[in-house]
C-alpha cells in the first residue's frame, strides 16, 4: 500500500502542491498527465530520490518519509532501462539481491527464476550493450522485481519502445502484477497505456491532482474539461 499525504515540493518554477493519493495494497494505479505536470517528481518522492518540503509518504503502513531510497524496499523502473553498463545481464538482475538479504547461495537461483518470468533467461550471460530496447526494459523489470518488492514504481517504462515491443511488455506487466501481487504506481503520458493497465487512474495537472478514482468511474465521469480532453475519445464514449 502507498499512502501519500499532503506532499509539497517546489523545484524552481515547478511546484507539487499538497498532493494526497492512496494506492491500495496490491492495486495498480496509473498516473496520467501531460509532460511537466509533475508525474516524475511524484514518483521520485515516493522512491526517496527526492525529499518533500512537507507531507508524508507511507509504504505498507510505515512512515517512510525520512527513509533513504535504499531502505524503502521498492522497485523502480526507469524510462530508459538504466542498466549498469559494466555488468552483464545476469549481474544486473542480481544486483539488488545481496542488499535484500538473500544468502549468496540462493541468488543465482532467484536470478534465473525472475529472468524466466520475464522471458530473458536466454540473455543471462550477455553484456547489456546490444540488447534491443524491449529486451533492455525486460531486464530492467527483472532487476527491479528480483528482490520481490511489495511496491513497484514505473516511470514511463514503455515510452522508449517501438509499438510491437510496447504492446508485448504492456501485456507482460498486467500478467506479472496479477501473479506477483505487488502494489504498482505507474506514471505515463499515454492514455491508452494508462487505461490498459490502471485499475485506478489519477490525473495530474501542473503539480496538482485533478482527479483520482477507479478507472471506469474516472473514464465515465471526468471531473472537468481538462480531464475529459486529456483522457480523449474513450472517456467521452464511456
Amino acid at each position: 500500500m502507498i499512502e501519500l499525504r499532503g506532499l509539497t515540493l517546489s523545484l524552481g518554477a515547478f511546484a507539487l502542491r499538497d498532493l494526497s493519493l492512496t494506492v491500495p495494497a496490491g492495486g495498480y494505479t496509473a498516473v496520467l498527465g501531460p509532460s511537466g505536470s509533475g508525474k516524475s517528481v511524484l514518483l521520485r518522492l515516493v522512491a526517496g530520490l527526492l525529499a518533500p518540503e512537507r507531507g508524508e509518504v507511507r509504504l505498507d503502513g510505515r512512515d517512510a518519509t525520512r527513509l533513504p531510497s535504499e531502505r524503502r524496499r521498492l522497485g523502480f523502473v526507469f524510462p530508459e532501462a538504466a542498466l549498469f553498463p559494466h555488468l552483464g545481464v545476469g549481474r544486473n538482475i542480481a544486483y539488488g539481491l545481496g542488499a535484500a538479504g538473500l544468502p549468496a547461495a540462493s541468488r543465482a537461483a532467484r536470478t534465473r527464476e525472475i529472468a524466466r518470468a520475464l522471458g530473458v533467461e536466454a540473455l543471462l550471460g550477455r553484456p547489456v550493450q546490444g540488447l534491443s530496447g524491449g529486451e533492455a526494459q525486460r531486464v530492467a523489470l527483472a532487476r527491479a522485481l528480483a528482490p520481490a518488492p511489495r511496491v513497484v514504481l514505473l516511470d514511463e517504462p514503455l515510452a522508449h519502445l517501438d509499438p510491437p515491443a510496447r504492446e508485448e511488455l504492456r501485456a507482460e506487466l498486467t500478467r506479472l502484477h496479477r501473479e506477483l501481487g505487488f502494489t504498482a504506481l505507474h506514471v505515463t503520458h499515454d492514455q491508452a497505456e494508462a487505461r490498459a493497465l490502471g485499475q485506478r487512474l489519477a490525473v495530474l495537472r501542473e503539480g496538482r491532482l485533478v482527479q483520482e478514482g477507479p478507472r471506469d468511474e474516472v473514464l465515465a465521469r471526468p471531473a472537468d474539461e481538462f480531464v475529459a480532453r486529456f483522457l480523449g475519445a474513450g472517456a467521452a464514449a464511456g
Binding site: L49, P68, S69, E70, F78, E80, A82, F84, A100, L153
Partner: peptide, 27 residues
Amino acid sequence: VPTSLEDASRSLGVGPWGTFWRVSLPL
C-alpha cells in the same frame, strides 16, 4: 556517469557508499 544509474542502485537497496563503489567508481 548518468545519475539514473546511481538512482537505480539506491532503489535496489544499495546505500550511497555501496553505490559509489559498485557503480560510480567503476564507471
